[in-house]
Simulated scan of single mutants.
Amino acid sequence: MGMSVIIASARPDEAEQILKLQYLGYQSEAELYSDWTLEPLTQSLESLQAELAEHRSLVARLGDEVVGAVRGWVDEAGVGQIGRLVVHPRMQRHGLGRRLLTALEAQLAEDGATRFELFTGHRSLGNLRLYRSLGYHETDVREVSRRLSIVTLAKPGEASLAA
């Protein structure tokens, strides 16, 4: 009998597991952009612990193992800022990123988000495909270097659609 993946709030004692997952999950992004200084790869445990305490943080658990994570918060303009969506490489392409993202959107909507925003690199085609399939559209592209442009995507919250 197999275990199912549970989406739940991150616990403070999971910070180290999340950091290791983040490091593992962002290796492919680092290779794609030939840049191993990406923030998710250089973040300290203390910085991550502070984020977990200050923001909504969800994990996907398979038994006791954290196999996915995402974080977000609602800014002063009512925009749900979403970041650091990561899924263990062996668990990718099973809808886990979609589940994490939609669960976080629901929590941020409860916190008052009327719109959601996230970003990814321009070469991260899988990420872009996922976000577009969930209703996100490109709002900005900012060149960071010759190798990297940041694509910002946004979508209205459910309350905005009903108005």
Rank of each mutant, 00 (worst) to 15 (best):
Leu85Thr: 12
Leu85Trp: 12
Val86Gln: 05
Val86His: 05
His88Asp: 10
Pro89Val: 03
Arg90Cys: 01
Arg90Asn: 06
Met91Val: 13
Met91Tyr: 15
Arg93Ala: 10
Arg93Gly: 07
Arg93Glu: 09
His94Glu: 12
Gly95Cys: 03
Gly97Gln: 14
Arg99Asn: 01
Leu100Tyr: 12
Leu100Gly: 08
Leu101Tyr: 11
Leu101Asp: 08
Thr102Arg: 09
Thr102Cys: 03
Thr102Asp: 06
Ala103Lys: 14
Ala103Thr: 14
Leu104Glu: 08
Glu105Thr: 03
Glu105Lys: 02
Ala106Asn: 05
Gln107Ser: 02
Leu108Thr: 06
Ala109Arg: 10
Glu110Ser: 09
Glu110Phe: 05
Gly112Trp: 06
Gly112Ser: 06
Thr114Ser: 12
Thr114Trp: 12
Thr114Gly: 10
Arg115Ala: 05
Arg115Asn: 05
Phe116Leu: 01
Phe116Pro: 00
Leu118Trp: 06
Phe119Thr: 01
Thr120Pro: 03
Thr120Ile: 01
Gly121Thr: 01
Ser124Phe: 01
Leu125Tyr: 14
Leu125Phe: 13
Leu125Cys: 14
Leu125Gln: 15
Gly126Glu: 11
Gly126Phe: 03
Asn127Asp: 11
Leu128Arg: 08
Arg129Leu: 08
Leu130Arg: 13
Tyr131Phe: 09
Arg132Thr: 00
Arg132Pro: 00
Arg132Glu: 00
Arg132Ser: 00
Ser133Trp: 11
Ser133Arg: 13
Tyr136Ile: 00
Tyr136Asp: 00
His137Lys: 10
His137Arg: 14
His137Leu: 08
Glu138Pro: 02
Glu138Gln: 10
Glu138Trp: 08
Asp140His: 13
Val141Met: 04
Val141Asp: 03
Arg142Ser: 14
Arg142Met: 13
Arg142His: 14
Arg142Leu: 13
Glu143Val: 15
Val144Trp: 11
Val144His: 11
Val144Ile: 14
Arg146Val: 02
Arg146Pro: 08
Arg147Ile: 07
Leu148Ala: 12
Leu148Ser: 13
Ser149Arg: 14
Ile150Asn: 04
Ile150Ser: 02
Val151Cys: 06
Thr152Phe: 11
Thr152Lys: 12
Leu153Trp: 06
Leu153Met: 12
Leu153Tyr: 07
Leu153Cys: 04
Ala154Tyr: 06
Lys155Arg: 13
Lys155Leu: 06
